[in-house]
Design a protein around this nucleic acid. Structure first.
Lengths: 304, 304
DNA sequence: TTATAGTCATAGATAATATCAATAGGAGGA
DNA sequence: TCCTCCTATTGATATTATCTATGACTATAA
């Protein structure tokens, strides 16, 4: 027969207060109940745990041993409750966010800041990588969710995706091309110019290539870059025609160091999406973050 | 409402096996019982702990937190049971013995050895000191029991004393006194010789003084020593007449370097006693030791 | 497709037990 | 002396833990 948790609690409490009656009061039990628990405990362990005197109880040497271990164990259980409660009430926790360069810079950064202000005690871990990398991290449970740029078709595989904002890609060129690309331009025309875009293997590059393919063209860029924020400076220096998410070009366009090329068929918009794995449920903290993302970003539609 | 220990056990077991059915089998419960426990737990903590799938269950992030703490706590409880069992079955433990020089050398030492052979895994702590010092140690619970030399009257204060053996004190003299102390001698006659005994404050000294007082004499020794085993060598070298427990003189008497003076009224015997404090119950290990002492030492009456 | 075997959830009956109020029996203090 | 504060016991009662039987679902095998 196994002692119950209540019996252990009564034991530890009685050992601390050196009185069964005091323990009973503290635990909101009657004194006979405490007596009964301790008799149970002593029967289970086969030895006396207390010396009963007229003015209370004292631990036997065996009782002392049991007390040392049990007070530890019960403290650990209380700790479990407290920590869980802290996580549940968002007084504590971790959110592990996966992001790509694009979503991090032009969508996530201000929202991370806002989340941190709302829940200062929740730690944020940002994993920065490529879209496929983020998906494997998601599969392995290494991140809670990812914020990725997806084509309208969505994703293959078992993911829950929620669109958060639209991402518009633009074609930009430096002043030296203004006369040549003044009006509405076709992709075919563009193909004669030096083109600048991301390296293969990125979703941005896949997207542009898909657009070219859909018009029967093939993309052969003059320059390929690993990070999107390097494209605009190159374009500003007249090195070619760039394909970038609008956010990366906004400042340069305002500065008039580059201009946006008007395409005959504008590049199809992509989505910034929240991607979760149904295999790994979200922690309370992560849920709070995703709820912040999905609720507020429905009202102010675009993050660009 | 507080979860029960069984609920926690079911939780940890289910988390480990990733299956409610497997946990039920392991805990000798029915599967609905495990389900019920977990529903209880989730209700208590206000959040889901498991994701139920067709092929078992997985922990939620909150469940992982709870699992980390609870598996610790349950392990600690099991540890408590094991350690207590080990102490109970004498596979482990400590005995703290208080002893004086006399009882240690001529009574306790062989019994300590025998105890260690019987219970090799029980540690022995020997506190060596004066009789009053041992009694305060006993009061403070610093030792489990003491083995002391007591006069027949016993002890004042609340102690349980059990006589273990008799201690006979003898008067010894060197060859140079043989002619003078050949026959039966009175204490009064002895008083003219140089006397050697223990320093004041020891029970041995008190005992001798009490004997002198009872015959209307006062003891004024020529030499006072702090340890009993130095008396015999001094007597062997003809420096005086010594008062010692018989055991300290036995070898020298056999060697005939000293002889025992025949007193008119032999010194009253004292007892080697086991002394316990009723305020501090004995551990299982200490009980085993005291039982070894009291049982076997009744049969072979004298330790001297 | 159907059958089977595995998962977890639910319902209702029953047996175990936790708890209490009432009471007894001491021992120390005014 | 009484009064109070301990713990232990008893017997009634309410709680709850547990079981069996069942349902719903899915993946695998026939």
């Amino acid at each position: 027969m196994e002692p119950s948790l209540d019996a252990y609690k009564a034991f530890v409490c009685a050992a601390r207060t050196k009185s069964l009656s005091a323990a009973a009061r503290e635990l909101y039990l009657s004194q006979p109940t405490v007596t009964h628990h301790l008799q149970n405990l002593e029967a289970c362990h086969g030895c006396r745990l207390f010396v009963r005197t007229r003015r209370g109880v004292t631990l036997t040497p065996e009782g002392k041993i049991l007390y040392d271990y049990l007070s530890e164990a019960l403290a650990r259980i209380d700790e479990a409750r407290d920590v869980l409660e802290a996580h549940r009430t968002l007084a504590r926790g971790v959110v592990r966010v996966g992001a790509t360069e694009t979503t991090l810079h032009h969508f996530l950064l201000p929202r991370l800041r806002r989340f941190k202000e709302t829940y200062p005690d929740i730690r944020l871990k940002i994993a920065n990588g490529s879209t496929p990398g983020m998906l494997t991290d998601l599969d392995e449970g290494a991140i809670d969710f990812a914020v990725l740029v997806l084509a309208k078709e969505g994703l293959e595989g078992a993911y829950r995706t929620t669109p958060l904002a639209e991402l518009r890609d633009v074609v930009i060129a430096g002043e030296k091309y203004r006369s040549a690309l003044n009006g509405v331009t076709t992709l075919e025309q563009l193909a004669d110019f030096p083109l600048i875009c991301m390296t293969p293997g990125t979703l941005s590059r896949d997207h542009i290539e898909a657009v070219f393919r859909s018009e029967g063209l093939s993309l052969s860029p003059d320059m390929e870059l690993a990070t999107a924020d390097l494209i605009t400076p190159l374009v500003e220096n007249g090195l070619g025609i760039g394909f970038v998410p609008h956010a990366f070009a906004r400042d340069a366009i305002a500065r008039r160091t580059v201009f946006e090329v008007q395409l005959e068929h504008p590049l199809p918009p992509r989505s910034i999406c929240l991607v979760c794995s149904p295999a790994h449920p979200l922690s309370a903290a992560a849920r709070a973050f995703t709820e912040m993302l999905t609720s507020q970003d429905k009202k102010q539609p675009a993050g660009t």
